[in-house]
């Protein structure tokens, strides 16, 4: 086998990147800071930094934390839109910092970054997620079957049955939807879109046998009927889940008792 020879013509032909065509631009990151150990008030703080517009908001936050101000506090884990820990309110809209490119959110103006709303801010961009996860636990987001014996083979299901709840399996529990919901902002007792999406994932799963039970939980006074269909959740979802549609399907299942 002949070893392929790399064609170096392109690299050699292109001019040395000069100062004029540098990809870097100057952006202002306006971050809502809160540190209860310093002050009871939250303040907006501006940071100027040089950044490639093709980089993400998370990269800008990293630059600030690593080079400018180490006290900036935020959550992130995988940094690739899967773990769901860096949901924040960027320019007034809930997004994942690791999936938002600087060039997509108008870097001419200061980019505002703040913690997601409706949950207790602990420090800077970190919120207490416990009420959010409590609502998630309350819909029993796990497979429940009536048979008591351990199954001896896989629980099979047709492709159509799997497709029925495919959209809602995408949820990464980042809380972007729930913390964009105006009903949730004013009343934390509401289950919120994320819990309903995860209930939907099991209610419409042909292998699960506790759909009736979950529907009963969501039929209560703080369940699906509090949804005002403002579509904020659908706009906020970084995974593109049709959240409002899922909620509507749960409502329909409650009325028709067919799911």
């Amino acid at each position: 086998m002949a070893t392929p020879v790399l064609d170096k013509a392109d690299a050699a032909g292109s001019p040395e990147p000069g100062f004029a065509d540098s990809p870097y631009i100057t952006v202002t990151m306006r971050i809502r800071r809160f540190n209860p150990e310093v002050s009871a008030e939250a303040v907006w703080e501006d940071f100027q930094l040089e950044i490639d517009p093709k980089e993400r908001v998370l990269d800008a936050l990293h630059k600030i934390k690593w080079d400018l101000d180490g006290t900036l506090t935020f959550r992130r884990s995988c940094a690739h839109g899967i773990c769901g820990s860096d949901a924040m309110r960027i320019n007034g809209k809930n997004r994942l910092a690791c999936k938002t490119l600087i060039k997509d959110i108008n870097p001419e103006k200061p980019i505002t970054v703040e913690a997601i709303k409706g949950l207790t801010v602990l420090k800077d961009l970190v919120v207490d997620m416990e009420p959010f996860f409590q609502a998630y636990r309350d819909v029993m987001p796990f497979l429940i079957t009536k048979e008591t014996n351990e199954p001896t083979r896989e629980r099979l299901q047709t492709a159509e049955d799997r497709a029925r709840f495919d959209d809602t399996t995408k949820c990464i529990l980042c809380a972007a939807c729930t913390s964009s919901c105006p009903v949730f902002w004013n009343d934390g007792q509401y289950f919120g879109p994320a819990a309903i999406v995860n209930a939907h994932r099991f209610i419409f799963d042909s292998r699960d046998e506790a759909g009736e039970q979950r529907l009963e939980i969501l039929n209560d006074k703080d369940g699906v009927w509090r949804c005002r269909t403002t579509f904020n959740c659908t706009d906020a979802c970084p995974r593109g889940i049709e959240v409002t549609k899922a909620i509507a399907e749960v409502k329909r299942a409650l009325i028709t008792r067919r799911f």
Binding site: P36, E37, S39, A40, K117, V121, P131, Q134, A135, Q189
Partner: peptide, 20 residues
Amino acid sequence: SLYSVDNPAPVIEPPRQRTK
């Protein structure tokens, strides 16, 4: 400062939080 590590400011809790 009015607040310190041992004496942090109260956090602002949203209305009607869900609990267990």
